[in-house]
Design a protein around this nucleic acid. Structure first.
Lengths: 208, 208
DNA sequence: ATTAAAAATGAATATATATTCATAATGTGA
DNA sequence: TCACATTATGAATATATATTCATTTTTAAT
C-alpha cells in the first residue's frame, strides 16, 4: 500500500513549521542577525534539515515573504472583482489590509524592513520577484482609483500618485502600530485614514 | 610654532572624506553587504585607518545617519521658529525636506532602509539615538499641526495621527523617486502632496 | 639632518555562521 | 524480521570579513 499521500502531507506540514519558525525569528532579529541554527531550534529540527526544504537562507526568507504576499494579494483581488463603487472598494481594501496585518504582525515586521533594503542590494530573482509583486499591487490600487475618477467619485489626478499616497498613509499607521508598545486595534484607525485620504485635513469653511 | 590647528582641520577633512565614501557604498549595497575594505578603497585610505576615526563599522554607519539627520532637523527647526500661519509652515517644511533629499539622494537610500530594520535588531545606544530623533521630528510636526487646529486652519483631530499621515505620504513619494529609473524633480511633487493632504481626494461636489 | 610624536597601513588574527555530507534514525513493504 | 528508501542530523568545513597591531611613513620642531 502506498502511503505516498501521507508523506506529502507531512512534508508540507514540516515545511510550514519551518516557515513559521523563520517568521518568528526573522521578525525579531532581522535577516542578518538571524542564524539558520536558531530557526532550526525554534522549529525543532536539526540545522541540516532546513536545507532539505530550502536551498539557502535567502531562499527561505524570500519564500516566506513571497507566500504571505500572495495570500494578501489574493484577498484584495477577490475584493476588487466585486462590482461596487470605487470608494466602497477602497474602504474594503483598507479594512482587509488592516485586518490581515493585525493577524500577521510578525510577518509585517519583516515585510516593512524589506521594502527598501533588498531592491538595490540583491539583484537576484528573489528580490526582483517580491518587488514586482509590490508594483503589481500598486497598479491594482491605481486602477481602482482611476475608475473612481471616471465614475466621478474622485478628483482627477495621476492615479499612480494617488496609489502611492494611499499606501504611504496606510504604511505609516502600520509602522506606528508595529513599534508601539501599547497594543491597540489597528483597524480602529481605518476611519481616520480614510477621512484624511478622502476629505483632507484643511478645515472646510476655509475653502472657497 | 604649533601647527595643531591645521592638524585638526585635516583630521576633520579626512573624517568627512571617509563619511562620504561610506555614504556612497552603504547607499549602493546596504549595511551588511558593504565591507570596511571597500569603504577604505573608495575613501583612498588603508583599511586600518578607518579605525582611527570610528571605533567600528556600526559606529561609522550610525554616525553617518546621525549627523545628516541633525542637519535636516536644524533646517526644519529654523523654519518652525518663523512666525507664519501653520499651513504656510507646513508648505515650507515640505519644500525644505524635498530639496534636502534631492541634494542627498544617497543618504536617503540609507535612511529609508534604516527606518525599520534597526529598531528591533539592535538595542544599542546607536539605534536608539536615531530612533529618538525620528520621534522628536514627528513631535515637532505634530506641534505644528496642533497649532494649525487652534488657529482654525486645520480640522480637529489627533495631531500625532496627522503627523504620521503627512510623513507617510511624503515618504512614499520619496521612495518612489528613489527607485524610479527616470529622474524627475522631487520638488515638483510638492503641490500634489500638499493637495492630497489638505484637500483630500474625494470630488468636492459629492460632499454635503 | 635628527628625532620623536602622530598617523597611516595592510597582512595576520579571530570569529562567526552558512552550508555540506557522512552517518543515524525512521518509515515502508514484503 | 529484514532490506530498502527516505528523511533527519549536527559535527566538520569553508568562507568571509571585522578588527587588531607591529611596522612604516609622515609631520613638525630643533
Amino acid at each position: 500500500m502506498e502511503k505516498i499521500a501521507r508523506r506529502k502531507r507531512e512534508h508540507l506540514a514540516h515545511r510550514r513549521e519551518i516557515l513559521q519558525a523563520a517568521e518568528r525569528v526573522f521578525a525579531a532579529k532581522g535577516f542578518f542577525y538571524t542564524t539558520m541554527n536558531e530557526i532550526a531550534q525554534v522549529a525543532e529540527f536539526g540545522t541540516g534539515t532546513l536545507y532539505n526544504f530550502f536551498k539557502s537562507k535567502e531562499d527561505l526568507y524570500f519564500t516566506l515573504i513571497d507566500e504571505k504576499t500572495d495570500e494578501i494579494n489574493r484577498l484584495v483581488k477577490a475584493e476588487l472583482s466585486q462590482k461596487t463603487s470605487a470608494i466602497e472598494r477602497i474602504k474594503k481594501i483598507l479594512v482587509l489590509q488592516l485586518e490581515f496585518i493585525e493577524r500577521n504582525r510578525d510577518f509585517f515586521r519583516i515585510y516593512t524592513s524589506e521594502g527598501s533594503r533588498f531592491e538595490w542590494a540583491i539583484k537576484d530573482d528573489c528580490g526582483k520577484k517580491i518587488h514586482d509583486k509590490m508594483v503589481d499591487y500598486i497598479q491594482l490600487l491605481a486602477k481602482t482609483f482611476e475608475q473612481g475618477m471616471k465614475e466621478g467619485e474622485l478628483k482627477r489626478m495621476n492615479p499612480l500618485d494617488l496609489a502611492h499616497a494611499f499606501e504611504g498613509i496606510v504604511h505609516s499607521f502600520i509602522f506606528e502600530w508595529l513599534i508601539s508598545p501599547e497594543s491597540y486595534s489597528l483597524i480602529s484607525k481605518a476611519d481616520t485614514i480614510l477621512g484624511i485620504f478622502l476629505k483632507g485635513t484643511e478645515k472646510e469653511e476655509r475653502r472657497k
